[in-house]
Amino acid sequence: MNAIDMGVLLGLLPDFGTAALRTLALLAAAVAGGLLIGFIANLARELGPPLFARLYWVYTAVWRGVPFLVHLFIVYFGLPSAGLALSPFQAAALTLAVYSGAYFAEIFRACWRAIPAGQIEAARAAGLSRRQVFAVIQCPQALRAAVPLIANQAILVLKESALASVITYPELTMTAGRIVAVQFTYVEPYLLLALCYWLLAAAIARAGRLLARRTAIDAMVKK
């Protein structure tokens, strides 16, 4: 078996560097959008009228119950017939944001629910409004608890972003595929592709751990 050709590998780096930046851009847009959508969905469920709770259920059920690739096809190939043509990046970022938003919403819901009911009762008994309970009692604790789960979900978003290659957004996976098609070398591009994803995922996990440690309530006690 041939060893990995270092010359080939080094030659791939510039293309992969550019592609990694595109993957990062997609990831950043999707996670930022997804967090915003997820937070608003949870806010509406917590504080809105009962109708919002039902809409929340429909949104999370539909978007978590259908494969991401199917959503992506509908948005990229289907929306143009409704008069909305998006670029591959726009379509991928939008779909990934709405898709991950459903998961982020569920993370927020779980973290909101995890706050002991007694704390909420104490706040209500002390005269705090529902909004104040949400903002002052639930938010600070639930968001802290959500940090590791958000990091985990961001890693899943990173890996789903590979599917943007199917609609020709030239991120990491598409770049690797193109190189393979042209150069007929398989090992180096795909190994490098795997390494890139793994490094990005490891970076996200580490950032999540650091942020969780930084924001822990116990840590603040010792300060």
Binding site: Q119, A122, A123
Partner: peptide, 17 residues
Amino acid sequence: VREPVAMVFQQFNLWPH
């Protein structure tokens, strides 16, 4: 209406943050 009433709980129910 409940403003004149305050409550102390078995499990304290303090806000830990």
